[in-house]
């Protein structure tokens, strides 16, 4: 009895968050799991009959003439999405790390101002901000007009409706998710550690490599997760800046719950995405354990 009470007491602080997520997230996900094994309803929803069609569809498709054939369409879409999400994480890290470090090295009151400066743009709706990028990138946009006025190019460059534009849009959207956690882990960085490192190696970059980056690691990991997962499911930047000419996972799932009226397939896609992400996290956690997981004091 005591042990149960003890367990309860020690877990007290965990209860609000986990209970909220369990009730309002896990239960709904279970509903989705059930949907993924149903046959699609005529007008959205599901029919109460067991079916694994939704999962078969991921790799095999009845062609227009009802023959089951291997169909790489969804694999292609998945690889494209993963690739763009990885590019976004790398981009966010390359841009976000120096910024987080620079801010962490500022005097305290200035640091908070910088942080607030990062969040100000987000008071503006994402769709509106993405529209502004169209103004910058399109054939008659700021960049092309500027370059042509300077005489550097004669024909407008194709910037909009490319995968590069999508990556740019995603980096723009998610880079604060990288900066804030890295900053949080660097903020009380002990300068004596760097001093010691400088004494030892006498090179700023070596100190960065062996002291700062390991210190920032928890933040980098948190940031990478915060960027990668939403980027994988994003659809605003792909649609607006990519021109919607190629589907991404986010728009694909979206499609199933709207005009395609195939909730079970949308649910199955969601389950597969979740499983993939969980697997990545699991392998990360295991390798982190093996390697001792960063710096210990």
């Amino acid at each position: 009895m005591t042990s149960l009470r003890e367990t309860l007491r020690s877990h007290l602080a965990l209860i609000p968050a986990t209970a909220t997520i369990t009730i309002f997230m896990v239960l709904p996900i279970l509903i989705i799991l059930v949907y993924s094994f149903l046959a699609p309803g005529d007008y959205g929803g599901g029919k109460p009959e067991f079916s694994t069609n939704a999962y078969q569809r991921l790799l095999f498709q009845r062609d227009l003439f009802d023959q089951m054939v291997f169909d790489p369409a969804y694999l292609k879409i998945a690889f494209r999405s993963v690739w763009i999400a990885v590019v976004s994480v790398v981009g966010c890290l390359l841009l976000g790390f120096p910024v987080a470090y620079y801010i962490a090295c500022q005097p305290e009151e200035r640091r908070n101002i910088f942080l607030l400066l990062i969040t100000i743009p987000f008071w503006t709706n994402l769709l509106v901000r993405t529209y502004c990028w169209i103004l910058v990138l399109r054939d008659t946009g700021l960049v092309n007009v500027g370059l042509m006025r300077m005489g550097l190019i004669d024909e407008p460059l194709t910037l909009l409706y490319t995968e590069g534009a999508v990556a740019l849009g995603l980096i723009y959207t998610y880079v604060p998710f990288m900066v804030l956690p890295i900053y949080a882990s660097l903020e009380r960085m002990d300068r004596r550690l760097i001093e010691a490192a400088r004494d030892l190696y006498s090179n700023r970059w070596v100190a960065l490599r062996y002291v700062v980056i390991p210190l920032a690691m928890p933040g980098i990991i948190a940031g990478a997760i915060l960027v990668f997962i939403p980027a994988l499911g994003a659809f605003i930047a792909p649609d607006l800046l990519g021109g919607g000419k190629n589907l991404m996972l986010g728009s694909l799932v979206q499609l199933q719950f709207s005009s395609a009226r195939n909730w079970p397939f949308g649910s199955a896609l969601a389950m597969v995405i979740m499983a993939m992400v969980l697997m990545c996290l699991f392998f990360y956690a295991r390798s982190a354990k093996k390697n001792g997981g960063g710096i210990k004091h």
């Binding site: 227009l64 369409a73 589907l247 005009s259 395609a260």
Partner: peptide
């Protein structure tokens, strides 16, 4: 018909 439309659309934008 919706199913066929859906396949055409996915094949177009894959």
């Amino acid at each position: 018909a919706v199913e066929l439309q859906n396949r055409v659309w996915t094949a177009l934008l894959q």
